[in-house]
């Protein structure tokens, strides 16, 4: 066999349909992705609600047990209660909206994308939420006259939280991107056709 023969063998595949999509398997993969997205969202929401509520109660408790007259600490507790309330309302609305997606492959995919979009919004909001909390915390420290190294440590902590929040946010965005690619493939007619090499 010469190289021209090798080339001819290679060229035979140009008119040969070799692969087709196994839609059942694709649907299962979409369901797995949806399940994963919902699980992560569920855990994130619950954790954020509990943490914000717990932190708010703790700050308020400290302020009441040892009154210092530090207004910023009260404001921070109020902000955290507000955040917790907002997250709870969002969670209820998200869960009640789950029923609007049908159980077809397209429906499940739209649902998975919707959950991923929600998760992205949530992670972005929580990242921005670091800023008012950090501001109130620093103002509280300033009012109570804490040493500069304590303030420095707190700034470092919030900066790190903000950075990690961005990293987490990008992971969610990438996951949503993958789902959108599948959706685009499904929307194109090619998916249902046999694929030719």
């Amino acid at each position: 066999m010469e190289f021209d023969d090798v080339q001819r063998i290679w060229d035979t595949q140009n008119s040969m349909p070799l692969y087709a999509i196994n839609e059942e398997a694709l649907h299962r993969r979409i369901l797995a992705k949806k399940k994963k997205a919902r699980h992560i969202t569920n855990i994130s929401e619950l954790l954020l609600i509990i943490v914000n509520l717990g932190a708010g109660i703790l700050i308020l408790g400290i302020n009441f047990s040892e009154p210092t007259g530090n207004i910023f600490m009260y404001l921070m507790a109020a902000w955290m209660f507000g955040t917790s309330l907002y997250l709870t309302v969002s969670r209820i609305r998200r869960i009640s909206g789950d029923g609007r997606f049908d159980r077809s492959m397209h429906g499940d995919l739209r649902h998975a994308i919707s959950v991923a979009t929600y998760q992205i919004r949530l992670s972005q909001l929580m990242r921005w939420n670091t800023l008012p909390i950090a501001t109130l915390c620093l103002l509280g420290l300033w009012q109570s006259g804490k040493p500069i190294w304590v303030v420095g440590l707190i700034v470092l902590f919030f900066a790190l939280s903000y950075y990690v929040g961005g990293w987490e946010h990008n992971i969610y965005k990438a996951r949503k991107g993958e789902l959108e690619i599948i959706q685009k493939k499904l929307e194109s007619e090619d998916l249902t056709d046999n694929r030719s090499m």
Binding site: T12, Q13, A20, I21, E24
Partner: peptide, 21 residues
């Protein structure tokens, strides 16, 4: 993902395979 989830999405069509390819 479980084993079921990773079932092949691409599967061979009914066209006979070219062994040389």
């Amino acid at each position: 993902e479980t084993l079921d989830d990773v079932q092949q999405v691409l599967h061979e069509s009914g066209t006979p395979r070219d062994e040389r390819l």
